[in-house]
Amino acid sequence: MNNYKTVSESQTTMTELMIPAYSNFGGKIHGGIILSLMDKAAYACAAKHAETYCVTASIDTVDFRASVEVGEIISLLASVNYVGNSSLVVGIKVLAENVKNHQVKHTNSSYFTMVALDEQTHAPIQVPGLVLENAVQIQRFITAMHRKELNRYYREEGERLKSVFKSQDVLDTLKKERCIIKTS
């Protein structure tokens, strides 16, 4: 299996203590800090798989499930879920542990699409294929394929609506929503 890698070859875990400087005005860890750490974990995982520099192309839905407290230790679990030609989808799961009572909670999940770039030309380059070794890995790969298809549909639908947004059918759908249309 030339130029293929297993999921486990690039799986990455990053761990960091949440310090007071990371907190927001509400005393919880700022969501931007969590996002930045998730991006670092996605990069580390993607770069290990691609064996080259990678950039973040998109972040698909960041779910904030629970707040993170100062003093907790977070672990960011990153895994390549899907590979295309030059892109990789890295799933990130964030767990926070209270070191005093050993309670662990799932705080965040997201999917980062990363693109591998040639370090000289900065052009996208092909990444190794992915060896799927169990049902969970197969399910994650297929789910990522479907998410990619849905995102393409949403982009195309958004473009289509730009050209028809003034039609009565489209405007009628807004009558049930909490908005007022004021156009010239």
Rank of each mutant, 00 (worst) to 15 (best):
M1I: 09
K5G: 03
V7D: 03
Q11F: 05
T12K: 07
E16F: 07
I19Q: 13
P20Q: 06
N24C: 02
N24K: 06
G26C: 07
K28R: 13
D39P: 08
C45P: 07
A46S: 10
A47Q: 15
K48P: 05
Y53D: 08
C54M: 12
A57V: 15
A57C: 10
S58F: 04
I59G: 02
I59N: 03
D60A: 01
T61R: 15
V62D: 05
D63R: 14
R65L: 15
S67R: 01
S75F: 04
S79M: 12
N81Q: 09
G84V: 06
S87G: 05
S87R: 03
V89S: 14
G91V: 09
G91A: 10
G91P: 02
I92G: 01
K93Y: 03
E97Q: 15
E97R: 15
N101A: 04
H102T: 07
K105C: 00
N108T: 01
S109K: 08
S110M: 05
H122G: 02
L130H: 04
L130E: 00
N134A: 08
A135R: 10
A135L: 11
T143P: 00
H146A: 08
K148H: 11
E149V: 11
R152M: 04
R155T: 09
E159F: 06
S163M: 13
F165P: 01
K166S: 08
Q168P: 02
Q168E: 15
D172P: 00
L174V: 05
I181K: 02
